[in-house]
């Protein structure tokens, strides 16, 4: 196979039939999924179409002063999404999340783009935006998992944390075992995907490149780099978010904040 196979408007419309079929099944089973499914399909179509035009423009202009604000905006949206569904948090974690996501994404993404891929110019939008986007997507999920796990662990172990404080433990010593679990929880999906990649599934990026006509050997190389950078940024992001957040669970007197306590 050489080159990519284009998808016509008719073929695009055909794919919607699959969503309608799923929707009909949900109506039959009274799952109430038809509306969110249709809304999700419409949103995905509009968002992807718009981003297609936006990316075409940005790739043409290819200026660093446009690329950096866009990546920062993507980081902020990812931070909000990462913290939106996290419950039991005694403070607003959006800024800690933004700092963790942005720092880990920029450190790892810059190394991958500038040192490993080395496009011309070094800030090529066509390379930077998809690479940073992939890192952001994975960091967002990992940070959401880590934060959620950390606070639910502390909530479930208030007595143990307070007991450790009574022994004379520092706040870090009192929560470190729960922080470790939180970091593991955030990293687990990434580690699992490293274990099964190529055996159970072909990752989306590699599949896309093969469909676009790239040789599988070359696509594999890109995919390997991407997976390693995702693992590195996820680890960095999870460590940063728990380090930035754990102290906010304690008062100036090194006691658990009231909202985390049971009584």
């Amino acid at each position: 196979m050489s080159g990519y196979i284009p998808i016509s408007n008719f073929q695009l419309a055909l794919s919607v039939i699959l969503v309608l079929l799923t929707g009909l099944i949900s109506v039959f089973l009274r799952l109430d999924l038809l509306k969110p499914l249709l809304w999700g399909t419409v949103r995905a179509f509009i968002q992807l179409t718009l981003i297609g035009y936006v990316l075409t423009y940005i790739f043409q202009v290819n200026r660093l002063w446009i690329i950096i604000p866009i990546i920062l905006l993507m980081s902020f949206i990812a931070s909000r999404e990462a913290t939106r569904r996290v419950r039991q948090v005694p403070f607003n974690p959006v800024w800690a999340s933004f700092l963790s996501i942005t720092a880990s994404t920029f450190v790892v993404g810059s190394i991958v783009v500038v040192v490993i891929i080395s496009p011309q110019p070094w800030y090529s939008a066509q390379v930077m935006i998809p690479i940073f986007g992939m890192i952001l997507g994975n960091s967002m999920n990992a940070i959401a998992l880590s934060l959620d796990r950390m606070y639910s662990e502390i909530h479930a172990h208030v007595d143990e944390v307070e007991q450790l404080l009574c022994f004379g433990a520092s706040p870090w010593e009192a929560v470190v075992r729960y922080v470790q679990k939180a970091v593991s929880a955030g990293m687990m999906p990434t580690i699992n995907s490293l274990m099964v990649v190529g055996l159970v599934s072909l990752p989306g990026m590699m599949t896309g490149q093969i469909l676009a006509g790239m040789s599988p050997q070359l696509a594999v190389r890109y995919q390997f780099v991407v997976m390693i950078m995702v693992a590195a940024s996820v680890a960095m992001g999870c460590l940063l978010i728990v380090t930035l957040s754990y102290k906010r669970m304690f008062t100036a007197d090194e006691a658990l904040v009231e909202s985390l306590r049971k009584n």
Partner: peptide, 30 residues
């Protein structure tokens, strides 16, 4: 908290043996 030490009504013991639990506070820096 090491000078004025609180012992809760419901005993809080951690994973591990009783010996591990007795040693646990001595693994803390303070």
């Amino acid at each position: 908290r090491t000078r004025v030490h609180y012992v809760a009504q419901k005993p809080v013991l951690f994973e591990g043996s009783v010996a591990d639990n007795l040693c646990l506070p001595f693994s803390l820096k303070t």
